[in-house]
Write a protein that binds this DNA or RNA. Structure first.
Length: 196
DNA sequence: TTCGTGATAGAG
DNA sequence: TCTATCACGAAG
């Protein structure tokens, strides 16, 4: 199991190393194959940039706390608070199912493959993540992450689905994985940026 | 491509 | 109050 200290790295470092880890959520689990970093300071795409409540959340909670919110009135987004020298969040964008597949499919109306957990809103629906998990802890027996083998092929790419600061290479994916929420941007395909 | 949906924050 | 915005996904 990943110790809390893991989440005392910078959000970028945390996001990069979280790829390939297994996320356990109750009876279900999956390998994190895609996530994005958001910096609490100086990142126009981070909630802290415009939301006082998000800044308070960072100040009042410790590393490894779940930051869950509803987007577009429909989709729950699952983030982890990271607090190192730099503070911020890691948004979990896609997982590859490991345990509890039937339960996930039930929650998703029988969806399979990428449509099941390939997307931030899809994976929360599959795992049953909702606002009641906001402020919860990622370092418990019920919800935790652990290393699931050696991971070498992580690709850094620009973040997606946002309108600001898209150029930052803070989206991290497991190369070629079938469960990614979207393909890599054209200019990033085929090489691994120095950030890795 | 369009559209549903609700929390948040800032303006008036 | 009103309005803009939003890290999305399903249907067509």
């Amino acid at each position: 199991m990943i110790p809390r200290e893991f989440f005392t790295q910078s959000p970028v470092e945390c996001a990069r190393t979280l790829v390939g880890c297994e996320l356990v959520w109750g009876a279900c689990s999956g390998i994190v194959v895609e996530c994005e970093a958001y910096a609490a300071v100086g990142d126009p795409a981070c909630h802290t940039f415009t939301r006082p409540s998000a800044r308070q959340f960072v100040a009042r909670h410790r590393a490894g706390t779940a930051y869950v919110y509803l987007n577009y009135g429909l989709h729950w987004m699952l983030n982890v608070l990271t607090k190192g020298e730099e503070e911020g969040f890691v948004l979990i964008r896609a997982i590859e199912p490991r345990r509890g597949l039937p339960a996930m499919q039930r929650r998703r109306g029988g969806k399979v493959g990428r449509a099941l957990t390939g997307g931030p809103g899809r994976l929360t629906a599959a795992l049953g993540v909702t606002g009641r998990h906001h402020g919860g802890d990622f370092c418990t027996t019920e919800r935790r992450c652990f290393l699931a083998g050696e991971v070498t092929d992580v690709v850094a790419d620009g973040r997606i689905g946002i309108s600001r600061a898209r150029e930052l290479p803070w989206r991290f994916t497991l190369r070629g994985n079938d469960y990614l929420s979207a393909p890599l941007k054209k200019e990033s395909r085929g090489h691994t940026p120095a950030a890795c």
